[in-house]
Structures are given as structure tokens and as C-alpha cells.
Design a protein around this nucleic acid. Structure first.
Lengths: 342, 342
DNA sequence: TGCGACAACTAAAGCGCTTTAAGAGAATGG
DNA sequence: CCATTCTCTTAAAGCGCTTTAGTTGTCGCA
């Protein structure tokens, strides 16, 4: 393992080796205008020769700008994983870097946020926060903050994919395939599930399927989906839906399992649509049609919002009204949906 | 979102408010001996009143110790997620904090490592690295480094769970249930798969099952497992194994899918053991017996190793020999294994 | 020749903290 | 009563960088 600290070269070393002052070296290394061509060359040469890497902490401290975005996420969530990747990409385009923090046994969401603030990040991104409104508002007061996947509050902007549009996409797709008996597997209590349920109703009405609206109890986990499937399969044949839209992929996958074991082919006997476009949905063996919340789009919108707040000065400060940024989800069509069988 | 920087209080503010010097305030806030009881009280009071939080960057810069462990991981891996959580816990016990970095589109493993080093972390943890040996050795030369899940090289220590023991546990368990025809579903080319295959052979021999050794081609994904299952189910009945040990959970789950759809009950018709004890294996609907690499154990060992190298001075520097830390995996028994049917 | 304008550079003052070395009292003791 | 030893404080020197204000030297032009 170890090695004694091989004494990293510092800026003065580079400057000395290049025969210039640290001021010049600093300017050159950051590509700032000023130094002459000759100076630039010798500094770059010296830096390369010494293997110089600036000390981030010192730079940040001196520059009073950290170019750091703090991201608070749940390390065990695949959806968050995708968001983090996308955020990093988007941050890079704005010259920002990410510092990550996650909720663990010894640190709750507030503690993790504090840790990020201690790094003096210029903006805070909170993924799917379970924080109380008041705590959120407090954070928003200390640092430009965006929550992803839920509505903002007070000074905190929310960036989210429209659930209404999501369900519209799902119902449209199924209706186009000839389905009429389209059931919706409900989620847990909460604003997200409410929005999706509402979106489902609205979309059904839109297609003149008011009479077919069919909301069955579900949940968030695979086993919830499994129970739902049992319930649906227990109905008399005529009353069974020909298609299912589930609150999320996990629920959809649980239902799918039971349905298949019941001897019903998918999509011939029943079409299924999930929500989230999670990695399991993409597995060749699962191949689930799903609504993607477009992590890349969410990430871009998030970073753009924060970046705007950095240079665009404080936004609508006094009036602590918040504005959400709502993007459109996408329908990812896979093998779990097909035309309704004759 | 925004808010104009509400000017965080600095140490001088606290000191001033408490009527002491910054030196005293600094000592008090870090619980160092020196200041009197009265001083302690007033500083703490002032800090609380102002809502003071030290600027991490400034502290780190001045203290020349960062107490930071850099962790390089794959944000899309559930196994890494568990490790990160466990690492954080373990680091906390040693007074260390984690700074995370992940491979993304714009940053490869080496780039991510550089980012971590720029944060001046005192130790580097690389989870399941795909880095070349030479790159690893280079990192190890710059900073105490531990790789998790693979053997070390040069100055880099490896921390891993014994594959030999893992397969021993699996075979023991099945043998105890009366199985004799235990097949092993092989993994992709590489040292890990080799170690597991060897462990399987050894364990079988140990149980006097030399004649039953049965290694079938597999792979790392669900679909690889599915193909394997098709191959096995294509055999004449007598030659079919009564139990399967798969290279990993994903492969096991793919096989399980095909087997169930083939009308064979699990575990009555066939027992299956996976490897990794990944979240999908734990799902109620999957309920897969699996070998856990004991993330908590790995994390503890990793942090302990690094911590030792911090104060214990450089370890065996000149001789660039490396030592691995090998821990024992655990068998997690679930519903996918049962007694061999009569 | 002399003066302003400009380009290229640098000395030095921080950033917010830690730490060292030294100072000021108070307490001890001969 | 003065020397000695503590205990408690603090001024000041950094940490490695950025940035401001200012210096130097060159050139053009009246």
C-alpha cells in the first residue's frame, strides 16, 4: 500500500522552474490572458516536467469560487446513479465539478447536506429528498438549491418530469395498440402517486375511455405488484384488463412475474408498462416498456438552473415563491406491450 | 432556488463574539486541550449563536491533514453502493470522511482518481478496479491505496473475500442437503472466475465428489445464465444436476427464470446458489441463496489497513511486495436451496 | 527628447483556518 | 521577595493558491 508523501510540487516550484513569478504561473495554468507566449510555454513545460497538479483546496480558498456542486443522493438507488452520471456530464459543460454525499447509517439527509456545504459548494442538488419542507427551505436559504423529482418550496426550485405527460404517453401508446381495458396499478400514498393517478384518469378520459377507468391498489415494491396481479387474475375473465400501467418498474416486474407463472404470455395475453425505465426493466429477460423520466434531461435542467442563479444574481429573492422546472418524460417501448389480441 | 450568500460567519467572528483570539477559538472548537473552562463555554456559546461551521477547505489547507479518504466506485453497481455505505461507517469510526468519485462519460478511472488526489485525500480506495496494473502501481506510489475485490500489486494492497472459501460454503451447504450432482456455472475469463472454478473443484473433491465435477459455460449477465439453463435442460434427465452454483447472482437469476418457465419448481426440482448476495437476490420473489462477500467486513478491513498506514508510517516501502487482506465470505441461505428430492 | 499608452510582469495582500513560539499572569517554593 | 514553574492566551507565521495594485520597459508620436 503506502508510500511516504512524495512532496507534491507546488505552484512556486513550477514558477521557479519556469523563471517567472507565481502570479504569472497561475495565470498561465488557468489559461487567463496576460502572460506572453514565451512565458506560457516555459510554464507549461515546467508544469509538465514536474507533474504539477494544483491543490484544489488552496485554489478554492483563494478564488472564493469553488465551482463545486454538491449532490445529495441515495447510493442504493439505480435511478439516482443515472442522475449522478448525467449531472456530472452536465456540470462539466458548465465548468463545474461534483462533490457527492450520501445518506448512511451515521449521517442523515440533513447531515449529508451540511457536509456538502462545508465543502463550500456553490449549489446544492438534492435527489428525491425526503427532507421536511422546513429543512429544505432552510437549506435553500443558505445556498442555491434544487430538488430533483419533486416540487420545490420557498427558495428551492424543483426539477421534475411531468407525471401527467408520462401517463398520457403510456395510455396513448396502449390505445394506439387497440387496448381499451387499461388498468392502472396505484402507488403508495403521496404526491407523486396522486399526480400519476390523476394523469391516468385524464388520459383515459381524453381517449373517451371514461367508463374503463380501473385503478387497482398496488405499491412500490415487487411484492406489492405481485399481490396486485393475484387480485387482478382473480377476477372473472371478462373483467380483466388487457393492459396494465404500473406506478413504477418494481411494481410492474412483480406483477409480471405472477402473470407469467400463471401461464399468461406477455404481451400476447397482457401488456404491461412500468415507470422509471430502471436497469432491471432493460434486461433482455425482462424487456419492459416503461416511462423514462429522462435523467439526462433532468440533469441538464438542474445544472442550467443552478448555473443561471450563479451569474444571474439572486432570483426573485424577496418573494419566496418558487418555480418548478418541468420536463417531459419519454416512452421507451420494449417487448412487454403489443397489440390487443383478438 | 437562490439567495445571495448570507455571509457565513468565520472563525474570527466567533472569536470576537466570545472575546478571545482565533487561536483559542480554534482550539476550543476542535476540543484540543489548553483553553480554560470559561473560554470553552463562551466560544461554544458564540459558535452556536452565530451558527458557525468551519470552512473545511481552509481547515484542511492549514492543518495539512485532510482526514479524507477518496473512494473511486461505479455508481451503477449495487455492490459498490453497499461498500460505499459500509466504508462511510468504518471511516467515521476512524475520524475520517469520504470523498466520492465515480467514472462517468467525461472521466475515466484514472481521471476520477486524479480528481480525488486533487482533494488531497490521505488514502485511496478503489472498488473493483479495471485499471491496468501499471496505472495502479503509479497511484499507489502517490498515495496509500487499497483495491477492493481484487489482488493488490506493488505498493497497492488488495482487500478481498476468499473465493475458495465461498465455493466451499456453497458446496458444503448443498452436500449437507444431500446433493451430489452439483454443477458450477462458470464466469467470464479472468482471475476471479478462475479462483471460483478452482474453489469449486477443490470443494467437490473434498466431499469425495470428484466424479461429479460438472462445469458448464456461463457468463456474467442474466442472459448468459438463461443460455446456460437452456443447455442444461437440454440434457437427458439422468445427466441433469440437482443443484447449480452460479458465478454470480445475475447469472443465477437468468438461469432461474428459464428453469421456472420450464415448469421446474425451485428448490424442489433444482437448487440454485448465486454469488454476491445482491439486492435482487434478496427480493421476496427471487429469494436466492447466495454467497455474500460481506461488504461490511471488506469495508472495515479496508479502512483499518489505510488507517494503519497513516500512523504506522510507510509500510514495507523499498520491497514493493504487496500483501492482500483476505476475509471470509458468508453463506446467506434463502429459499432457492432445499434437500434433494427423492 | 519627453510623455503617455500599453504590454508583460511581479510583490504582496489576502482566503479562513491551524499551529508555533512567545508572553502574561498566577501559583509555588525556597 | 524573587526565581521558577505552571496555566492560559495570543500574535504572527504559514498552508498553496488567486488577485489586485503597481512596477518596469517598450514603443510611438509630437
Amino acid at each position: 500500500m503506502g508510500s511516504p508523501p512524495p512532496a507534491r510540487p507546488r505552484l512556486v516550484d513550477v514558477a521557479q522552474a519556469a523563471g517567472v513569478s507565481t502570479a504569472t504561473a497561475s495565470l498561465v495554468l488557468r489559461g487567463r490572458p496576460g502572460p506572453s507566449g514565451a512565458a506560457r510555454e516555459s510554464v507549461h513545460a515546467a508544469a509538465a516536467r514536474l507533474g504539477y497538479r494544483p491543490d484544489r483546496n488552496a485554489s478554492l480558498l483563494a478564488a472564493r469560487r469553488t465551482h463545486l456542486l454538491g449532490v445529495l443522493f441515495d447510493v442504493s438507488s439505480p435511478f439516482h446513479a443515472e442522475l449522478v452520471t448525467a449531472l456530472d456530464e452536465a456540470a462539466g459543460e458548465h465548468g463545474l465539478d461534483l462533490v457527492l454525499s450520501t445518506v448512511t447509517g451515521r449521517r442523515d439527509e440533513a447531515g449529508a447536506a451540511d457536509l456538502l456545504l462545508d465543502f463550500r459548494c456553490e449549489g446544492l442538488v438534492i435527489l428525491g429528498p425526503t427532507l421536511k419542507r422546513s429543512a429544505l427551505v432552510d437549506l435553500g436559504g443558505r445556498c442555491p438549491t434544487v430538488v430533483v423529482g419533486r416540487s420545490g418550496t420557498g427558495p428551492v426550485t424543483g426539477v421534475l418530469a411531468s407525471d401527467r405527460v408520462g401517463l398520457e404517453l403510456a395510455v396513448d401508446h396502449l390505445a394506439r395498440l387497440g387496448h381499451r381495458q387499461i388498468a392502472y396499478v396505484d402507488g403508495p400514498p403521496g404526491s407523486i402517486a396522486t399526480a400519476r393517478r390523476r394523469g391516468y384518469r385524464q388520459a383515459m378520459r381524453h381517449h373517451g375511455l371514461d367508463g374503463e377507468i380501473d385503478i387497482v391498489a398496488g405499491g412500490v415494491t415487487e411484492s406489492a405488484g405481485a399481490s396486485t396481479a393475484h387480485a387482478v387474475l382473480g377476477r372473472p375473465r371478462r373483467q380483466r384488463p388487457t393492459a396494465l400501467i404500473a406506478y413504477n418498474d418494481r411494481c410492474a416486474i412483480g406483477a409480471r412475474d405472477v402473470i407469467m407463472r400463471h401461464g399468461i404470455e406477455i404481451p400476447e395475453g397482457l401488456s404491461i408498462i412500468g415507470y422509471d425505465d430502471s436497469p432491471p426493466a432493460r434486461l433482455g429477460t425482462v424487456d419492459l416498456t416503461s416511462i423514462s423520466q429522462d435523467p439526462v434531461g433532468l440533469a441538464r435542467a438542474t445544472v442550467a438552473t443552478l448555473a443561471r442563479s450563479f451569474d444571474g444574481e439572486a432570483v426573485a429573492q424577496g418573494s419566496s415563491r418558487h418555480t418548478d422546472v418541468v420536463i417531459s418524460p419519454r416512452l421507451v417501448i420494449r417487448g412487454s406491450t403489443g397489440p390487443v389480441s383478438a
